[in-house]
Design a binder for these strands. Structure first.
Lengths: 202, 202, 202, 202
DNA sequence: AATGAATGAGTATTCATTCAT
DNA sequence: TATGAATGAATACTCATTCAT
């Protein structure tokens, strides 16, 4: 099992090790959020995390592995959040279900807006093609499952387009000064409902 | 008035100078498209452009200035393309005008998909905040002008949201294998029409 | 009396300790043979030996001490092998005695060819000058003792030259593809006999 | 033509560049001779050579390339030296020819004794297998050419063995305190003549 | 005694930029 | 003006060694 850049080098067993592992990831998130990808270097991460550079390399085979782990954690959060909402939306009207999904998505983007944008870009140079495809399929399936309950035609294609368009809208709003949570929700709602109405009329 | 990183060091007057200047930008585009931002370094650019590193620095004060110039050229292309279409859309039905805008936008994205994504990211660390705000406003005004002709309420807000959502949809599609021009257009059309219908019903 | 890098930190008394000690040395030999000196690091040794890095340092004060111990063991093996043969050669003809010495030497080189070469090099940076001089003298005395029985003039000088030349021949052959045991023996025999004949004629 | 560790990165064109290139190699030789392979690191080389670390990497893709270039230069020196002597030995008696070859070889070893030993070891981890085989064949052919003139049977095999044995003898003597040039020559002469006599009697 | 988490000095390498020619 | 040799700060990563548990 050779260490690839895609997997952590050592799985933390002791409590201290776990804390170190998390500290490295949290420090990375902070740097990404405050200074961007340019300032994310291993020495800086170690310093912010309060560990030595050697310790960092005990847990991650390299800088890319840290980025990959951050991406994975963020994906897991979003997927689980959407899945939970999708499940509880089973017996609710379309508008309610949609709004719940929107809230989860917007909250997710708002948590670390800069980190999200940066990690999206990082995907383009990390060896994550296959994993990304799987993740996108999972997201599409979750959303498509909700859409299918309301007789939306071609639910997978609709889900994929909705996700992309909403991501663009939300991320774009968060980049600019227009970062009011409720305002974003309102516009996203119009977009989503409008799109679904149009798709149904097709 | 010292040269700021945001402006080329010299305005090329002679034809040879112009050719060198363009060669540097074209080389940068090629490297960005093929290898990504990581491989974009000044020595490599000079080599691909067929000039010496010294010459490169005669034309640009630094690496960032090259990126900035690429961003400006791309922005100018898109803005001019949309403006031309918007003008000729003055006496056409909404659907036709919208489709024309969509075509320009999709073509723009498809020209150098990887470059577009990369430059979008590069904006986040270049000193371009003000300029970017102006550009976005210009785009919004162009699109809002069209929407206003058809009594779309709050045309500026609608234009902004449409631009963001469509960018997300188109860029996302181009990232994945789903890069069929007509297929993208079809879905973008649904999104745009659906959104405008929804906005009108508000 | 602080532990010097030239001596193991503890003399193992219990069987388990002895096993650990040997496991570390065997692991080092395997790494040296398979991957070379570059890959020989204490963490790797500990891993291959199946002990923790802390335990390794209980038995050896440092990496150099491991190398030194390997060198000592190999030297002891060679010296004892040659000494045994030299003793039993007391009442045999010169050719027979010489052949026996050659066989021991070739067998010794063939056991771990890569390890031998590497440890020869390691001598150059380990604090082993005096010990090495003693060892070389011992070897020379063993061989010179045999030569003296057959009236070889200046037996010590002849022994020393023979050892050096044969080492060069054997090691060189083992480095290349020409590693046939019998073929090496044949050429070494010619070399040794020719040299002794020449020395006698002086 | 991708930069491999086996070839210099940039062939010096200007006089200044040539001087820098040579300074790097000379500094490496000095470090090798005085401190050994352990202390041979790129920063140290650059410092001793009086150039910056960046300059070093303009000429060599890495540390290994420097070692390889040193090996090549030493090999060329030895090969050319032996070839010249072999040619001029065409019409001389065997003893004279052999002595001339011995002198070249001993002089070569004595030039940088420590460097020679170290580079011999370095061969074992550098990607030089094929090149080394070619070089050894060339040496063997030069010496075998001389031996063949005097009806030595199997001249190639004899040449190869002689080279290996003499290298062992000379290098071994130079390692110890016994580094008298004439003394070494005398013993090498006995070895060479004895070996050839023995081979002829076979 | 054994463990393994942590350390940090050391080393290789890159790349934006300068400046003498 | 163009060239390309030179610079050196910045960065990734290794590995011998220590020490708290």
């Amino acid at each position: 099992m050779p260490a690839s850049p895609a997997s952590p080098r050592k799985t933390p067993r002791q409590a201290r090790a776990r804390a170190t592992y998390d500290a490295i990831l949290q420090a990375s998130t902070r740097i990404l959020q405050r200074d961007g990808l340019e300032k994310l270097n291993t020495n800086h991460i170690a310093e912010v995390a309060g560990v030595s550079i050697g310790t960092l390399y005990q847990y991650f085979p390299g800088k890319d592995a840290i980025l990959i782990e951050l991406i994975r954690q963020k994906r897991t959060q979003l997927r689980d959040g959407l899945a939970a909402v999708a499940e509880s939306a089973a017996d609710q009207p379309l508008g309610t279900a949609l709004d719940a999904l929107l809230h989860v998505t917007i909250d997710h983007h708002m948590r670390w807006p800069m980190v999200g944008r940066t990690l999206d870009y990082a995907e383009s140079f990390l060896p994550l093609a296959e994993e990304s495809a799987v993740f996108k399929t999972e997201l599409v399936e979750i959303v498509a499952g909700v859409l299918a309950q309301f007789a939306v035609p071609q639910p997978a294609a609709a889900a994929r387009d909705l996700i992309l368009a909403l991501n663009g809208l939300i991320a774009g709003r968060l980049t600019s000064e227009q970062a009011e949570r409720d305002a974003i929700f309102e516009r996203a709602q119009i977009l989503a409902h409008g799109y679904i109405s149009a798709v149904k009329k097709q």
